[in-house]
Structure formats: structure tokens, C-alpha cells
């Protein structure tokens, strides 16, 4: 049976949910080992060991790993890949940054953003913004894959009995350093794990109007807030709100698209929602071709009314 090494996404305090989908994908390939690379992250390693189905947790603790700089963590992963057959990372911005660096060092073709595991070395993945699904088979001795979180159920975060094993640090490569971050703090659910999402588009006019219109409905529903690329480009909301081919891929139970026309790049990010609701005053907007429930109406009257009646 082959051995997989799963990248644990974390903030040095807690395991992020995206890890759990990657564990489910990895379990289809073989034995699941985890890698926690961080700084002062012992609690993360202990929590990771509780994930159902996990064997060993490799734990490397070094200031050089605090911000998961690819230059520093890639050599560590390459060393551990000496005795693993597959490296599996969630397709988060961290996973997408690190995995190809590992793949190239291993001289392996990476398979990005897998949707399913079809065989030992065969996977499906989206191409052309999800307008086509390719089934690909690797001929490399080792595998490097990133996992689309919405395509795999989350492994149970508890109930496992993994063993934490300390790994020596490979140190700081001296090529890069972390300067700072602007990470939005929000009481709202995270986009990629939310059950309900309310998303706004260019029709929201400006950031004040976006907030005044979208947020009350989102608050009422306990929903996460998303946006189309047009709304982000126009500066209504920050970049991390973007849903779409190059933004976040989401699959909530209910996705409410408000004033979003439905460009293919946006649809690529949300068409796996269980129920899509569209509110748009243009009855020919492409969003209605994928929406389960559509309301042709001016959002500036319909949204306050909807919020009031819920």
C-alpha cells in the first residue's frame, strides 16, 4: 500500500478545514501521513493526530516555517518524500504556492485541483474554467496532487489516533522573508465552508451600497459574503471575497447571486452549489440559465423587501 504525505494547512494555532478534504482524497490513495510545518505549532500537530484515519504526523517546528514560505518548506517536503509515494495538498493559495515547487524538485508532473480519484494514478480535474473535465493518468514514480476542497467530503476532525513524530528542520533557505499580512477578521462564516452565501456583483454600485444592501441579508441568514470579479475589481470589497475561476471555489447549500450577470469565470466558482438563487433585473442574464430559482427584479427594492420578510 502506498504512503501519502498530506500538507496540513494551519495558522500555527489550529488545523484549517481544507486539510480535511485533502485527507479524504489521500485516503483513496493509501496510508495517510500528515506534515505539520510551523512555528510553535505543537497544538496543531496534536490536533492533526486526532483526524480520523491518520497514521503518522510529521512535525517540523522552526521559525523558518511560520509563514509556510515555499522556499523553506519545499526542501523539507522533498526530504520526507524520500519515504512517501504521494504528496497531497489542499488547493488553497498555500497549497498552490508550495506543491509545484515540490513537484519540480522531485521531477514530477503535478496534477492540480483534482475532483476525484479514479485509480492509483488516475484523477479527474477541471480545465477551461470547469467547462471541461479531464481524466488524466500519471506516469511518474511519485505523485504530487492538489485537491479541490468542495469535491471531497471532510474527514472527521476527531476520533483518530495518529502519532506525532518530530522531524528535523531543513532550515531557512535565505531566499525570502515574510514582511506582513492584511488578513480580514470577520465574524461571518468562511466562504469555502459556508452553508449559505450571498454574493454581489457590479450592480451594487460602490462599497457603501454593497454593504448596505448585501450585509443585512447575509446577517439575517447567517451567510458568508462573496462577490463577482467585477465587484472586486471595482473596489467594492477586498480580493478574498472573489468567487470564480481564479478566486474561491465554493459549493454551499444555497448560493444567492445578487446583481451578478453570470460570466463563465464566475459560474466556474459556484456552479456546484446545491441551490442557486439569482436576483437580477436583466431577465436575459446568463445567471438565470444555471439558477434553480430566479427573480427578475430591481435588487435595490427586492433585497430590502426580502431581508424584511425573512
Amino acid at each position: 500500500m502506498s504512503k501519502t504525505l498530506v500538507w496540513v494547512e494551519h495558522d500555527n494555532a489550529a488545523v484549517k478545514d481544507a486539510t480535511l478534504s485533502a485527507v479524504t482524497a489521500a485516503a483513496k490513495l493509501g496510508e495517510v501521513h500528515l506534515l505539520v510545518a510551523g512555528s510553535g505549532a505543537r497544538a496543531v500537530a496534536d490536533a492533526a493526530a486526532q483526524i480520523a484515519g491518520v497514521g503518522k504526523v510529521h512535525f517540523a517546528d522552526d521559525a523558518a516555517f511560520e509563514h509556510a514560505l515555499a522556499e523553506n518548506v519545499a526542501p523539507l517536503i522533498v526530504e520526507l518524500m524520500g519515504h512517501h509515494d504521494a504528496f497531497v495538498a489542499p488547493a488553497t493559495t498555500t497549497g498552490k504556492n508550495v506543491a509545484p515547487r515540490v513537484a519540480a524538485l522531485l521531477d514530477v508532473a503535478q496534477i492540480s485541483d483534482i475532483l476525484s480519484v479514479e485509480g492509483e494514478k488516475t484523477f479527474t480535474r477541471p480545465i477551461y474554467a470547469g467547462n471541461a473535465i479531464a481524466t488524466v493518468e500519471s506516469s511518474d514514480a511519485k505523485l504530487v496532487v492538489t485537491v479541490r476542497g468542495t469535491a471531497f467530503a471532510k474527514a472527521e476532525a476527531t476520533g483518530g489516533s495518529g502519532v506525532v513524530e518530530d522531524v528535523a528542520s531543513t532550515g531557512d533557505a535565505g531566499l525570502s522573508s515574510f514582511v506582513g499580512a492584511e488578513i480580514a477578521k470577520s465574524e461571518r462564516p468562511e466562504l469555502t465552508s459556508a452553508k449559505i452565501i450571498v454574493s454581489g456583483g457590479r450592480a451594487l454600485k460602490d462599497s457603501e451600497t454593497f454593504e448596505a444592501t448585501i450585509l443585512p441579508l447575509a446577517d439575517k441568514l447567517g451567510a458568508a459574503v462573496g462577490a463577482s470579479r467585477a465587484a472586486v475589481d471595482a473596489g467594492y470589497v477586498p480580493n478574498d471575497y472573489q468567487v470564480g475561476q481564479t478566486g474561491k471555489i465554493v459549493a454551499p447549500d444555497v448560493y444567492i447571486a445578487v446583481g451578478i450577470s453570470g460570466a463563465i469565470q464566475h459560474l466556474a466558482g459556484m456552479k456546484d452549489a446545491k441551490t442557486i438563487i439569482a436576483i437580477n433585473k436583466d431577465e436575459d442574464a446568463p445567471i438565470f440559465q444555471v439558477a434553480d430559482i430566479g427573480l427578475v427584479a430591481d435588487l435595490f427594492t427586492a433585497l430590502p423587501e426580502l431581508t424584511g420578510k425573512l
Partner: peptide, 14 residues
């Protein structure tokens, strides 16, 4: 300055 899942992050590269 990089667009990351939670917002923005800045790294300095040699």
C-alpha cells in the same frame, strides 16, 4: 504583495 485566501500577504525576495 500576494493575494492569499484570507486577504493579502507581503513577502520580500532576494
Amino acid at each position: 504583495t500576494r493575494e492569499v485566501d484570507g486577504g493579502l500577504e507581503t513577502v520580500k525576495l532576494a
